[in-house]
Design a protein around this nucleic acid. Sequence first.
DNA 1: TTATATTATATGCATGTGCATACAAATAAA
DNA 2: TTTATTTGTATGCACATGCATATAATATAA
Lengths: 137, 137
Amino acid sequence: MNHNELFSAWVSLTKFHDRLLKAMDYTLKDKFKLGIKEFYLMYYLAQSEEKKMRLSDLVPKVGLSHSALSRLVTRLEQYRVGSLVERQTDPNDKRSVDIFLLKKGEQVIDEMQMMINDSLLSQLSEKDIQNIKRLVE
Amino acid sequence: MNHNELFSAWVSLTKFHDRLLKAMDYTLKDKFKLGIKEFYLMYYLAQSEEKKMRLSDLVPKVGLSHSALSRLVTRLEQYRVGSLVERQTDPNDKRSVDIFLLKKGEQVIDEMQMMINDSLLSQLSEKDIQNIKRLVE
DNA sequence: TTATATTATATGCATGTGCATACAAATAAA
DNA sequence: TTTATTTGTATGCACATGCATATAATATAA
C-alpha cells in the first residue's frame, strides 16, 4: 500500500460519492427546486416522534452550520407554493426554536423520499450496497 | 433491503466521506490557507508529464465548473507568499490557456500531499482501505 | 473569401455557506 | 437580588460556486 494507491482510493471514493450525490441533487432541484440539504432537514423532521426538532439538534444531523441552517429554515418557510415547515418558539425556553414539519411538508418529503430511493437503486448494484454497508458499519 | 435501510446506508457513506474530507480540508486551510480543490488542481498538474494542463482538461479532474476553476487559478497565481501556478496562452490555439505548476507550487504540493496521506492513514484502518477499494473498483 | 457556428476562457450576477457578532433568554456566581 | 457567564438563534459580511453571457479565436459552410 503505497501513498499513491491510498490517495487514488480516496479519489475514487469521492467520485463515487459525488456521482450519487449530484444525481439526487439534480433530480430534487429539477422537480422541487429544493436541494439535498433541504431534503435532509425535512427527512429528520419526518422521522421524529412529533414531526418537530430543535434547530440546534438539526445541526449535526443535516451537517450545516447554525447560520446556514437558520436560513435554510427560512427558505422552507417561504417555499413557493406554501410553507413546508414552521418556526415555533419553545415556551419552556424562549431562546430555543422548534421547527415543525407542516402538512404540505409531509407530502413533499414523501415524494422526495421516493425519488431519492429510486435514484439510489438505479445507480447501485446489490453488490455496491453490500460493500457500502461493510465499509460504514 | 427496505427503503430505510438503503437510505441509511447512503447517509452513513456520506458521513464517512465528509468526515475524511473535512479533516483534510481543515488541515490544509490551517497550514496553507488553501482548500481541497486547490490541492486537487495542483496535484493533477504535478502528476502531468510537463507540470502543465489545459484549464478545460482540469475541469473533470477537479470537479468544478469552468468559471470556478478559472477563479481558482487566479487565487493560486496570487498566493500570499508568491505564485504557485502560472497561466500561459497556448501559441497553437490562442483561446486555450495552459496552467503551469511553478517551483513554489511543487514545494507546496509535496508538503500538502504528505499531510493528505497522514490524514488518510490516521483515520482509516487497513480494513477500511480494503473496503473502499472493493467498493470503487 | 466571407459569413456562420463552435470552442475556450473570463466575468457579472445571484445564491448558499461559514465566521464573527449581536441580541435575547436562561443559568451561575457574587 | 444583582451581576456575570453561558446558551440558542439570527444577521452582517466575505467568499466560493454555478449559470448566463461576453469576448476572442478557431473551424466550418456558403
